[in-house]
Design a protein around this nucleic acid. Structure first.
Lengths: 223, 223
DNA sequence: CGTGGTTTTGATAATAGTCAACACGAGTGG
DNA sequence: CCACTCGTGTTGACTATTATCAAAACCACG
C-alpha cells in the first residue's frame, strides 16, 4: 500500500486470474509479530494478503529504517530480486495470506496466463511506487500525513451510518518510517488535525474522518 | 537510473534475450529536448536506451516536480499502467533508443520468453525503486547528493589514466528534483565537496572523482 | 496497581528552503 | 570582436520546517 490515488482495479478480478490458473494457492494464518520472510531469504512464494496487515521494511546500515510498503488485503508482496526477497516482512495485524508458488515467475512458464497477470501486477506496483516518490520527495509533513490517512481510509476504511473511520494497523513510528518523518512529527500532525476537527481519535488507533474535503485540500496544498 | 548499489546484472544479457526473441527492435535517434512520450499517452512501445540520457518526470497539480528516474544506456523505460504511460519522458542528451512493441506485455503472449524477460526487468525495477525510497525518505541532503554522484559514476563514469570522472547529462535542478531537494542545496553541496577536494569540477558538467572513499563514507554517514 | 511501551507535548537546534543578488558561459547580433 | 542577453549556477542572509532531546501522559497487560 502506497500513498496514492491510483485508478482502482478490481483486485478480485486479478485474484481470480491467479486462482483459476493452474497454480494452487494455499491459504494460511499470520501471527502478529511473526515474520513472513526476511531480506535475503530465497524466494519460495509470493504472498497475497487476504486479511490483516503486513509491514515491509528495509534498513540502512546505521539502523535508519524505511517502511517500503504496508501489505493490505488484496496486495501481493514478496517480489524477488535475483531470487531473494529484498525486504523484511512481518505481521502487524493477524490475518491470513495465500501463497503463490515462485514457479509463476520462471521463464519455463508453467502457466503463461499467470505470468502475464503477474507482470501486470508488477507494472501496477511500479506505478504506485512512482506516486510515492512524489510524496516522499516533494510533499510537506502535513501533506504526507493527510494523504496517508486518506489513502488508508480508501483502502481499509469503514462506514457506520454517516461516520467514516479507519482502524490503523500500524504505530505512529511505522507511519513516520513510511513517510520519511519522525514519530513526534506524525503525532503533532495528528493532534493538529484533531484540534482543527478534521479528524477525531476514538482511540489511539481509530481515526474518524470528520472533514474529508478539508483533508483533501490539505493533502495537496500548494502554499 | 536510481541511486542504488544493486547487484549488477549484465544488461547486455537481458538485451540479447529481448532481441533474440521474435520481437523486432527498431532503433532510432533521440533529439535533445524532444519528448519520447507523455503522461497519459497510450503505450505503443517500451524503449530501451542505447546511448544518451532520458528524463522521466511527474508533476504535482501545483507544479512541484519529481524526477522519477533518469534513463541511461541499458535502461528500459515506458512501463505502462492501465495501458498508458504514467510519466513524461524527454531527452536530456541526444542519443538513440530501440523500441520494443507493447505486444510483449500482453497476455496472448506472442512470445512467452520475452514476457518472462520483461517480468524480470520489472522486478529489478521494483527493487531499485525500493532502494530509492530509502534515499528519499531517510538520507540527508549531503548523503543524497554524494550517493547520487557515486551511482551515476558507476553507471556512466569514465576513466582516463588514473582519473575517474562523470559528465552530468542533467542540470542541478534535475538532480534536485530527483533527490527531493532544491537547486540551491545541490549547488551548495557541490561547492562543499569541491572545497573538501572530494571532487573537482572541470566544467559545469564534468565532475572528477578525487576521493571516492571519502564520498562513500559521506554517502552513508550516520552521525 | 505497577511496569513497559507508545504517544503526546514542550523547548531548542539543525537542516534545508526561500528570496535575492550576483557570476558565469553560450549564443546572438551589432 | 565585443557588448548584450538569457539561462543556469553560485553565494549570501534569513526563515521555516522538521528533527532532536527530554519529560510527562496514557494505555495495555500482567
Amino acid at each position: 500500500m502506497y500513498v496514492t490515488s491510483q485508478i482502482k482495479v478490481n483486485p478480485v478480478e486479478m485474484q481470480n486470474v491467479l486462482e483459476s490458473s493452474a497454480v494452487r494457492s494455499d491459504e494460511h494464518k499470520t501471527r502478529k509479530g511473526s515474520y513472513v520472510f526476511r531480506e535475503g531469504d530465497d524466494v519460495d512464494y509470493l504472498y497475497q494478503v487476504k486479511t490483516g496487515a503486513l509491514r515491509l521494511t528495509r534498513l540502512l546500515e546505521d539502523g535508519r529504517r524505511q517502511i517500503i510498503a504496508f501489505g493490505l488485503p488484496g496486495d501481493i508482496v514478496g517480489f524477488p530480486s535475483n531470487g531473494a526477497y529484498h525486504a523484511d516482512c512481518d505481521v502487524l495485524t493477524e490475518g491470513s495470506v495465500s501463497t503463490l508458488p515462485k514457479s509463476m515467475l520462471e521463464s519455463d512458464a508453467v502457466c503463461p496466463q499467470a505470468q502475464s497477470a503477474l507482470l501486470n501486477i508488477a507494472l501496477r506496483e511500479i506505478n504506485a511506487m512512482q506516486d510515492h516518490f512524489l510524496v516522499l520527495g516533494r510533499k510537506s509533513a502535513d501533506e504526507k500525513v493527510t494523504s496517508f490517512l486518506l489513502a488508508l481510509t480508501e483502502r481499509i476504511g469503514k462506514t457506520s451510518g454517516t461516520k467514516t473511520y479507519v482502524d490503523l494497523p500500524m504505530s505512529r513510528a511505522d507511519i513516520a518510517d513510511f513517510l520519511g518523518l519522525t514519530t513526534e512529527t506524525v503525532s503533532r500532525i495528528f493532534t493538529a488535525l484533531r484540534k482543527a476537527e478534521f479528524i477525531a481519535l476514538e482511540s489511539l488507533t481509530r481515526v474518524v474522518i470528520l472533514n474529508q474535503s478539508a483533508l483533501e485540500r490539505l493533502s495537496e496544498e500548494s502554499d
